[in-house]
Design a protein around this nucleic acid. Structure first.
Lengths: 128, 128
DNA sequence: CTTGACACATCGACCATCGAGGTATTAGGT
DNA sequence: ACCTAATACCTCGATGGTCGATGTGTCAAG
């Protein structure tokens, strides 16, 4: 009841659309920006999503399907700790970045900055 | 004859290692940088790999398993054209960026530049 | 005559993300 | 009273990008 066409080799995406590039860009940034916003202050999952969207000007907006598994992974590895809070009757799980989490963030930033240099250089290539 | 351990939920990667972050960073950049190097001049697959590695200071080094499927996709969509050359007895397939390919590159650069701003801001967060 | 660089190609696996679906509570509008 | 939207959490399947292994072949150097 879905696709009559079955594509073992999917066709060409729309490389001309901004949506395509935004999509692929997101692919490695969510994990990074989750560390980024927790670096400022402890937050709960829902808040993290909004905050990431805000600081990236909407360019990067991880969904809940992304955030909660990642937070679980981070907690498993000791990069964040979590505690349960009750705010006006509602329960929420607040995540705090650990010392180890800050270290990880520093490594991530270093890695990204190197690529950023190459990225910025691309701007000049376009209109010489 | 392989893994005795079977992980439906894989454990925590090493978020402290540069290798991890380089790995995830690569995940959306190869397609981008392939356009980038072809923007300079026509190249063949092998050369593209080396050139991408060079301009990204080794940070991004797409393998052949990445490059050839991507080139095929680009050609399908009319973003590159290819012709066969024979250089000192060896055959090679040389790829040229089309007008449409240049357009796609411009869209991609615009998308990346927006994120880059948020990325650069992260540097200042670390040591206030 | 063997080794390593060049050059192309394919395949299975892995991992990050999304979107859809599910469960609850609270606040506000009518 | 009732319904809806926003808050808040969680899980699952599908999609898509990349890697590493594997295979084929040519050429140059030792």
């Amino acid at each position: 009841m879905k696709a009559p066409t079955l594509d073992p080799v999917p066709p060409c995406p729309d490389f001309l659309s901004r949506a395509y590039w935004n999509g692929t860009i997101k692919m490695s940034l969510s994990k990074f920006f989750i560390l980024r916003v927790l670096h400022d202050r402890p937050m709960h999952g829902y808040e993290i999503a909004q905050e990431v969207q805000r600081i990236t000007s909407g360019c990067c907006s991880p969904t809940e399907g992304t955030i909660y598994p990642v937070l679980k992974q981070y907690e498993e590895g000791g990069f964040v700790t979590s505690r349960t809070e009750v705010v006006s009757g509602r329960e929420r799980r607040v995540y705090t970045l650990t010392r180890k989490g800050r270290q990880a963030f520093r490594v991530a930033v270093a890695a990204w900055l190197e690529v950023t240099a190459a990225l910025l250089a691309c701007e000049e290539v376009i209109e010489p």
